[in-house]
Structures are given as structure tokens and as C-alpha cells.
């Protein structure tokens, strides 16, 4: 088992290096010269050259990449060319804000997804199945920013019971005021994970239920809850894999949902960085998100292997 964990961790190294390379190359391909954004067009050429040297942009591409990589590895994510603030600070606070909605959305979406999916499977073909499957399909197919806007229109505008914008007052001692601001974005964000997980769990449970070993469990006289435990443990690995992916997406923050709710999370940060051509912010954000994504997936791999011993080999 430890060998398995170690191997997974080693695999992550080339993946992360690859990600960093792709991010770097993408940034190189961005049309236009960053210097043009940083200084007014009428500035003398000498100034531009000076800045170029200062940022190391006069060096060959591979030297630039290695320098950037070295800085990142030593924890220096660079300085925003727009705000002149360290990227790490901006990124950290944006990620924290995204976590505030991503974690509740994940919990809500995952539990709802598992419940709806398994209930739909156990009542396969009945009206309950159709209802739950319908909810799941609606969850994945409705554009979630549209759902967000509809929710804002209903609960914030028409009835004025919930705030539709922002995070509410600063600070952490969470009050009802903070939670009120969470409700609509969390519901909106949870729709997609709920939908996809419910579809997967339904298909999985249906398949597992038709397996011979379930008949064998019944032939042993086991009671319903015990049989359910067997089925769910078999369904868990693939559901976990999907949850890992979905949680990764949630952490990336939905640009659209965060825009609708004016939520200053990582999605908003990415969005801003793109519009401002803030290359250091953009590349650091993508790299950090990708790293988190890889870490989550390693965790999922380990969890899967704990549940299903066949994966360990």
C-alpha cells in the first residue's frame, strides 16, 4: 500500500513538470508584447528595453522557463504587473474565497448526487427513477450561470429574501449574514456535480445490482442494509474518481458563476488576469490550480485503492 502511494507521488512529478511547461508555452503564445501593456506607447524604447532586462525577457526562452520554474519552486509566484502586489497574496485570498463556496457546494452536490442516483437505481424504471433522473439531467444540462441569474431574480430581486451579490461583511466569525450570501452561489455551483454524480451512481448501482455476487449475498440471507453496504462499497471507487474531478473544477472557481454573483474567487481572479493580460497572475493561478487538481486526484487514487484492493497492483 505504501509502495502504491509512493508510486503515485512519483508519477505526479512529471505530470506537474509537464503542466508547468504547457502553462509557460501558452503564455509565450499569447499575442502581443507584455511590455506594451506595462508602459504607455509614447515611452522611449530605452525604457522598454530596461524593463525587458529587468524581467529577464531578453533571455532565450528556455532560460526564461528555467528561471520561472526555479522561482516558483522556491515559493515566489511573481509580482502582478497590474497591481504590483505579490501574486501569492492575491491568489491565496481568491482561493480562500472560492473554498468558501466550493466546499459547501461539493458537500451538497455529492450527497444529493449519491442519494438521487442510488434511489433512482433502486427504484429503476418507476416514476421515482424518472423524477430523480430528470432532476439529474436538468442539473447537468441547464447552464448554471443562467440558473444563477434566475435564482437571483427570484430570491434577491422579487422576494428580496437573500442577497444576490458579493460575500457580505468582511471577517471570519461567521454569522447568518455571511451564510445568507453563500446560499445562492452554493446551490448554483452544486448543480453540475449533483447531476453528473447522480448519473454515474445510478448507472453503477444498476450494473452492480445485476451482478452475480448480489444474488449470492441474498442467498446468504443478508438483510437489506448489509447488502446495500456491499453495493455502495463497490460503487464507491468510480464515484470517488468523479468527485475528485468535480471538486477540482469547483476549486478552479466557475468564472461564470463567480461573475454572476460578483464573488471574488479564483474564477474572478483568472477572468481579471485574462482581461488585464496580467501574465504572472495568470500563469501562477493556472499552475497552482493544476497542482491542487493533481493532489486531489492522488488522494482519490489512494482512497480508491483503500476501498478496492484490486487497484493496488
Amino acid at each position: 500500500m505504501w509502495y502504491f502511494v509512493l508510486r503515485r507521488l512519483l508519477y505526479a512529478v512529471p505530470i506537474l513538470l509537464g503542466v508547468s511547461l504547457v502553462v509557460f508555452l501558452l503564455m509565450q503564445m499569447v499575442p502581443g508584447d507584455i511590455i506594451d501593456i506595462m508602459i504607455p506607447p509614447e515611452a522611449p524604447k530605452e525604457v522598454a528595453d530596461m524593463i525587458r532586462i529587468q524581467f529577464g525577457l531578453d533571455q532565450p526562452v528556455h532560460i526564461q522557463y528555467l528561471r520561472w520554474l526555479k522561482a516558483i519552486l522556491s515559493g515566489d509566484l511573481g509580482i502582478s504587473i497590474f497591481t504590483n502586489q505579490p501574486v501569492a497574496d492575491e491568489l491565496f485570498s481568491a482561493l480562500l474565497n472560492t473554498l468558501k463556496i466550493a466546499i459547501p457546494a461539493a458537500i451538497l452536490g455529492f450527497t444529493m448526487g449519491v442519494m438521487l442516483g442510488s434511489l433512482a437505481a433502486f427504484y429503476g424504471g418507476s416514476w421515482l427513477d424518472k423524477l430523480f433522473s430528470g432532476i439529474a439531467i436538468a442539473g447537468v444540462s441547464l447552464p448554471h450561470y443562467w440558473v444563477g441569474m434566475v435564482l437571483v431574480a427570484i430570491f434577491a430581486v422579487s422576494f428580496n429574501v437573500l442577497p444576490g451579490q458579493g460575500m457580505g461583511p468582511d471577517g471570519f466569525p461567521w454569522t447568518w449574514e455571511h451564510i445568507k450570501h453563500l446560499i445562492l452561489p452554493v446551490i448554483t455551483l452544486s448543480l453540475i456535480p449533483m447531476g453528473v454524480i447522480s448519473r454515474l451512481v445510478r448507472a453503477n448501482v444498476l450494473e452492480i445490482r445485476s451482478m452475480e455476487f448480489v444474488s449470492a449475498l441474498q442467498a446468504k440471507g443478508l438483510k437489506g442494509p448489509r447488502v446495500l453496504l456491499h453495493i455502495m462499497k463497490n460503487a464507491a471507487p468510480s464515484a470517488l474518481a468523479l468527485m475528485g474531478l468535480q471538486f477540482g473544477y469547483l476549486l478552479g472557481g466557475s468564472i461564470l458563476v463567480e461573475t454572476v454573483f460578483n464573488w471574488p474567487g479564483s474564477g474572478s481572479l483568472l477572468n481579471l488576469a485574462i482581461f488585464r493580460r496580467d501574465i504572472p497572475v495568470l500563469s501562477a493561478t493556472i499552475l497552482v490550480l493544476a497542482t491542487i487538481f493533481v493532489i486531489i486526484n492522488i488522494l482519490v487514487d489512494v482512497l480508491q485503492a483503500l476501498i478496492d484492493p484490486r487497484i493496488r497492483r
Binding site: 451482478m211 452475480e212 455476487f213 444474488s215 449470492a216 442467498a219 456491499h230 463497490n234 478496492d308 484492493p309
Partner: peptide, 13 residues
């Protein structure tokens, strides 16, 4: 009961 396929009639996990 004893089943035909011992591989598929035990829960793999």
C-alpha cells in the same frame, strides 16, 4: 447455495 462462477459470486471488495 453454491454458485457456478466463484469469481463473480464473491464480492470483490
Amino acid at each position: 447455495m453454491i454458485f457456478q462462477e466463484p469469481m463473480t459470486s464473491f464480492d470483490p471488495v
